[in-house]
């Protein structure tokens, strides 16, 4: 399949448009939460929706490389935007949890230490912080080859993020496992098996 025209069209999409479209749901969901559109328990609903969007943008970001390699679809220009939008949703998710949900500082610390799904989620967040901070041209230039290695932290971060969702589900639920499966698949596609490598 020849995607040349699709790829050149995608290249012409300005980054600011990706940021605006990607982040608009954050504002819209908050507005819905304020005005009753998220049901009678808007705090949990908002927390969960932000968390799901973070996972979805994480998956989109991780899909950029395999999409180019296996489908010829080139979204590399927009990978930074996708990654930073993912991080923005992680921050929104965390802020709703801290400020609206738990509220009590001592309980926040106890939760991080005592509850495995929160420990895991917090670890994923901490791994993403240096990636967000270095998602700019200056850092890429300064860090050189180290930049690529640093950004491989996104792999363990994605696994922890998916595990965070799996661990918080009550009973046996399929949805979190689908996110985990998608992330595992996208990571496996990066494993280069020497005998299959084409020159």
């Amino acid at each position: 399949m020849d995607l040349t025209s699709v790829n050149s069209a995608l290249r012409r999409v300005p980054s600011w448009l990706i940021y605006i479209c990607g982040l608009a749901p954050a504002v819209w969901l908050f507005w819905l939460g304020l005005t009753g559109g998220l049901g009678v328990e808007p705090i949990k609903a908002l927390e969960h929706r932000y968390g799901e969007l973070a996972l979805q943008f994480f998956i989109a970001t991780l899909a950029v490389t395999p999409a180019r390699r296996f489908l010829g679809l080139n979204l590399v220009k927009h990978r930074r935007a996708l990654g930073l939008i993912c991080f923005a949703y992680v921050v929104c998710h965390l802020l709703v949890w801290l400020l609206l949900d738990v509220q009590i500082p001592s309980q926040i610390l106890a939760d991080i230490a005592k509850r495995p799904y929160i420990t895991v989620g917090m670890a994923a967040f901490l791994l993403l912080v240096p990636l967000a901070v270095t998602s700019n041209n200056v850092s890429i230039r300064r860090l050189g080859p180290k930049w690529r290695r640093l950004h491989q932290l996104s792999y363990p971060a994605a696994l922890l993020a998916a595990l965070h969702f799996v661990l918080l589900a009550k009973g046996f639920q399929i949805e979190p496992l689908l996110y985990l499966a998608a992330i595992l698949l996208l990571l496996l596609l990066r494993v280069r098996i020497p005998t299959l490598r084409r020159v």
Partner: peptide, 22 residues
Amino acid sequence: VDHPRWSQASERRIGGGLFSRR
């Protein structure tokens, strides 16, 4: 007595909106 996943020390009454206190 804490549940392993949720502290049971406090609760949120449904119906208080986005800024509901525990």
